[in-house]
């Protein structure tokens, strides 16, 4: 096996995959949190809007969503702004995962004991303060494993960025495979590269879980 061609493209491709994952996840988390808050919030209009968003986006395959945003919307946007394919890809990933993450946050909030909200409000905390200091930290701790799953799923889904011309791991592997005809070797390397990213990610989430959960296991009265 000649490793020189791999040294050529693997580090760059790994970095691109990691970059796509991190930026898309950031968008997904922020937007997902906002949507999740809207879904449990007091404003009926926002609740409805968030529900519609989640239902619509969850119902469309991610592959179609990427094509829709890159080729569909891109054909309009391209008329006045030549955006990088990364913009399209991370938007598509972020918008899609926000829908799933919103549902996770909603479940996280709804699983909390009503007494937590009541205790916070009874002390005079506003709705917002109660959310920020009492509900969100507990919900976040509870949903961390589920968020970790989303992170891993997203990392693997970034392989779909190959359709918008980004030479991330899968796209680079495809290019080198068709050049070298070493299919088994190339896809083994690509698969190992994904594992090299997902395993530390899973491990990191577990570490964080342990750190947040160790002294505050749920209490049964």
């Amino acid at each position: 096996m000649d490793i020189h061609p791999y040294l050529e493209f693997v580090p760059r491709a790994l970095a691109r995959t990691a970059f796509l994952t991190v930026t898309s996840l950031a968008i997904g988390l922020v937007l997902g949190l906002l949507l999740g808050l809207a879904r449990v919030g007091p404003v009926k209009f926002l609740r409805r809007a968030a529900t519609v968003y989640v239902e619509v986006v969850r119902g469309i395959p991610l592959f179609v969503l990427i094509l829709y945003i890159y080729y569909g919307l891109g054909s309009f946007i391209g008329q006045f702004w030549v955006a990088s394919p990364y913009i399209y890809a991370t938007s598509a990933f972020g918008l899609c995962y926000a829908a799933y993450i919103a549902e996770i946050f909603r479940a996280g909030f709804q699983s909390l004991d009503r007494g937590q909200t009541e205790a916070a409000r009874a002390l005079g905390l506003s709705r917002r303060q109660a959310m920020r200091h009492v509900l969100l930290p507990q919900a976040f701790r509870n949903i961390l494993p589920a968020l970790g799953n989303e992170g891993v799923a997203l990392l693997k889904d970034t392989s779909l960025a190959s359709v918008v011309t980004i030479a991330e791991l899968t796209q680079s592997g495809k290019a080198y495979a068709s050049l070298s005809y070493r299919f088994f070797e190339v896809w083994t390397v690509v698969a190992l590269c994904y594992l090299a990213l997902t395993i530390p990610l899973t491990w990191g989430v577990r570490k964080l879980e342990a750190r947040l959960g160790v002294r505050s296991a749920p209490h049964t009265a």
Partner: peptide, 21 residues
């Protein structure tokens, strides 16, 4: 503003409702 009113009324619950985190 109920927050202001609640701030001057202390309450203790049957099930404690301490903040576990």
């Amino acid at each position: 503003s109920l927050d202001q009113h609640r701030a001057r009324v202390g309450m203790v619950f049957q099930r404690f409702n301490l903040f576990p985190h």
